[in-house]
Design a protein around this nucleic acid. Structure first.
Lengths: 159, 159
DNA sequence: ATAATAAAGGTCAAAGAAGGTCAAAGGTGG
DNA sequence: CCACCTTTGACCTTCTTTGACCTTTATTAT
């Protein structure tokens, strides 16, 4: 049997297919259409359109508020996911971190002006605390920066 | 759906572009044109044309009153130097750090794809150590990233 | 000159319009 | 029966719009 969650999911997938991977919805409107609680929409977005399923969701509150959903292109997506899940562990030396940035640059996922910033952030001098803490913090910083790339990778396409 | 605020914002941006960064408006006239309360114009100016978005607003009341809006031209080099030397101290909260990144973005010194990376690097979650060390490390990371921008802008000059 | 009046723009708080969170209750498959 | 989804609702936060009232400046009438 299909749940409301499934119905809403399918509806969003359909919209996405017809709109080239980027849509704009109103939470209340959608909830109205499916006769459910508005917060159900959030549930669907959290469980079915999460970042590791390859989607990006952004929203604004207040008058003129909206929810935007993007489908992240797969190539960049899988490289970034692999780096986040596998290559960056709990701790990371400067050398290892630099290799990862280089890999992103080589793959064309980032530009030089982005690589420079990332290099700067992971330098020893940027993290003035002792080992082993420094390497742990470095892993954390890099992971977050790579996550940011994941979030970004859809919107860059259109430019 | 776009709000009245967005419409007015776009209208002002258009005027600014056509008038070389300096315009002169009448509050009531503009409110009339968009059929809104005059105070809505103030709201737009406060939220969209604030000083840290790179705009300057001056006005005069009474007969022959006016509102003037200027776009402040920025010199990347001096902005970066000021941020390194003055704005980033020994320690920096996430809020303060975010303001600095926003300022760079608004000034057009960095692009969105760079801002996203910088933003990610300075998040609490990126620096998993306790206060007050976290704020000290954050200051250090941001300073190094801004230095990288400085280096980059010098190189670009020579091209 | 002065005092009234008209013509701007400014402030602030309340109401309205979204979306977000979280925990409790309700189902369902093993 | 238990663990794991779904569904719902009460309450929260953020952003926008409106309106009543205030201040400043210019003009006009005594």
């Amino acid at each position: 049997m299909s749940t409301i969650t499934d119905l809403i999911t399918n509806h969003i997938l359909l919209l996405l297919r017809h709109a080239d991977g980027e849509i704009n919805i109103q939470r209340n409107e959608l909830a109205e259409k499916f006769s459910c609680a508005p917060s159900q929409i959030n549930y669907v977005l959290e469980t079915r359109f999460s970042i590791d399923k390859g989607y990006l969701v952004e929203s604004k509150r207040g008058g003129g508020g909206y929810i935007r959903i993007f489908k992240i292109p797969v190539d960049a997506h899988s490289l970034l996911m692999e780096i986040i899940d596998v290559q960056i562990g709990r701790s990371l030396s400067q050398i290892e971190a630099e290799k990862i940035v280089q890999r992103l640059l080589d793959a064309g996922v980032i530009k030089v002006n982005q690589a420079n910033i990332m290099y700067a952030a992971i330098q020893r001098e940027s993290i003035p605390i002792n080992l082993p803490w420094r390497d742990i913090v470095r892993a954390s910083i890099l992971r977050n920066m790579v996550r940011a790339l994941l979030h970004q990778s859809k919107k860059e396409e259109g430019e």
